[in-house]
Amino acid sequence: MKFLIQRDRLIQSVQDVMRAVSSRTTIPILTGIKIVAANDGVTFTGSDSDVSIESFIPKEEDGDELVEIKELGSIVLQAKFFSEIVKKLPMDTVEIEVLNQFQTVIRSGKSEFNLIGLDPDEYPHLPQISEDNILKIPTDILKTLIRQTVFAVSTLETRPILTGVNCKVENGKLYCIATDSHRLAMRTAAIDTQSEETYNIVIPGKSLNELNKILDDTNEPVEIVITENQVLFRTKHLLFLSRLLEGSYPDTSRLIPNESKTEITINTKEFLQAIDRASLLAREGRNPNVVKLTTIGSGLVEISSNTPEVGKVVEQVQSQAIDGEELKISFSAKYMMDALKALEGLEIRVNFSGAMRPFVIHPVNDESILQLILPVRTY
């Protein structure tokens, strides 16, 4: 194998596939990156057997030559060393050549590295996925869906199913739901599909976080293929494969209250900043990070926190409107701030159905996104 390649594209592809490489794998060859030089370009693959990422660099793109293939072939190189080397090479062009016994030479300018490679035939094959039903969604919308839900997954392994995002496809819509049983995030978006089939899967939150980091902010479509135990995301030059979590996701529709006793409409940024300030003194004590919200008339909302051994803070925020009963409620400042950062829009609507019932946050005039938080008992 022998080819010349543009260094910046090489670095980008290696960084992308490195996201799937784990140093803690029990399969030694998976600590490496597989490189395949074919007639049409070079493919890089990284995998930890749960997530596999493949990045393809074509021979040319938009009239620019990216790769010059001199000899076809493949090799697996230790990811840790290879990724560090390519970042620090001196010139814009890199030559990679495999000699006998998997000895690999990496040249750039006057710099030359010799790496001992591994047998590419021992690298596990990515599973072949039949592509009967392809779903399509613009990349930027998929990134938004992930950003607005994935933060609410559970980080505890006690209920593994809650460490993933529940994705349902029905009637041309994709529903994404995440909950850690103290809060819930839900977002819906239209999806392009030729099939009537419905899906209900759970994708690990870790996988979606990695996918979000390597997707570009474009409106180019991402193709999604779902099988019984895996999901494939594919863009022009990227292939991202993740296993699915096994088990059934809890029915979260029962959590969402369908009545409201108090409704507050308020500026998102002002509300977020007031809660952020109140949380500064709420980090210690019996109920760490808890702030209290009280309606005090004239459309005013009081945000406060009180930690006896530290001090207290009180701040009033003017809302656009308060409808319904008076309210006193306590909640996690972190959960509220996470939810507000995920929402889009200048104003939000918060619907409360009692001091100890979950409350729901929507952007004003947008029902496609919903955040739900359980209050905290403070007495």
Rank of each mutant, 00 (worst) to 15 (best):
E270N: 13
S332N: 13
I322W: 01
G46N: 08
I137W: 06
H125D: 15
A190S: 14
I161P: 07
G164S: 04
G299Q: 07
V360G: 05
K269N: 12
L281Q: 06
I303F: 03
V291S: 09
P138T: 04
C176W: 10
L77T: 07
I33E: 06
A342Y: 06
N100G: 06
F82Y: 04
E54Y: 01
A37D: 02
D276M: 05
Q128N: 13
R183S: 03
R349P: 01
I11W: 08
I129R: 01
S108C: 13
I177R: 02
I116N: 13
L126E: 09
P288W: 09
Q316H: 11
V301T: 08
L300Q: 10
V317S: 05
R107Y: 08
T252N: 03
G172D: 09
G46T: 09
A321C: 11
V36W: 04
I35N: 06
L232P: 02
P221Q: 08
V150F: 08
D366N: 15
S260R: 12
R19D: 07
D192L: 14
L239P: 01
R187G: 00
I224A: 00
N267V: 10
L346H: 12
T193D: 04
S260G: 12
I296H: 10
E367G: 04
V231M: 11
S260C: 13
I177E: 07
T294W: 00
G117Y: 00
T93Q: 15
K236M: 05
S253E: 12
L232K: 08
D64P: 00
R107H: 14
I129D: 01
R9N: 12
E61H: 10
T179K: 02
T163L: 00
I27P: 08
S52D: 04
K34V: 11
F352S: 04
E367Q: 11
R159H: 11
D8Q: 14
R377C: 02
S242H: 06
R19F: 06
L211A: 05
G297N: 04
S279C: 09
N39Q: 13
T198K: 14
M1P: 11
S305T: 07
L370S: 02
V94P: 04
T45L: 09
V317K: 04
I329K: 01
K213S: 15
E309W: 03
S52Y: 00
K213Q: 15
V105C: 00
N209H: 08
Q103N: 09
D216A: 12
